[in-house]
Design a protein around this nucleic acid. Sequence first.
DNA 1: CTACCGATTGACT
DNA 2: GTCAATCGGTAGA
Length: 219
Amino acid sequence: MDTILAPMERPLCRLDLTPLPLEFYRRPVVQVARELLGRWLLRRTAQGLAGGRIVEVEAYLGPGDPASHSYRGRTRKNASMFSAGGRAYVYPIHSRWCFNVVTDTQRVPSAVLVRAIEPLLGLELMAYRRGTTQLLQLARGPARLCQALAIDRRLDGWNLASGRRLWIARGDDQVPAEEQIAITPRIGISQAREELLRFVHLGREAFLSGPRHLHRNRQ
DNA sequence: CTACCGATTGACT
DNA sequence: GTCAATCGGTAGA
């Protein structure tokens, strides 16, 4: 008689919150962007631990991408983009903050903008910081997630492999399969609008930013 | 110093 | 769907 209970391939309750190694980030930006989907972004402050699953990202390339902050060369603001992969690049826009993951080597000033996470840890803390109790409003949009996680200029250049303050981990390993990833144009830019460099985790549409027609492939 | 702009958001028609 | 608040960064006088 066959076994009635198949052994679990993965314990559902196992959480891996250890930081991804620097080697993860020191690869081509598009590959890192896709593989960031499903990973957990984590933030620890004196107030507690908060974070969630990355569900929406955009790749900003090194040379040749006019929408990338590195396109016109190095300045004080974008200096973090010119460091080796594995650091944060945090920049201000319209009195708010956006968080990027620096990728590739020092020679390739590229980064992945994290546009949305599915809130999973520290919901009360994130709700307090955001000033709303609505789950779907906590971290949908690049500036909203920074507010929810208290990310600002002090974390620009932060080493994401340190495992303190701000890092990325495997979490519960619920990474999207290939067919669960939609690839669309990037949001909010005026240059290179047609490039397909935005990656979203299908099945978690409720947590995505941007118009609904960009929650599927193409436009 | 001034002028202009933006990888946004929230309020509003 | 439209629109403007708001301010750090940047370029230029």
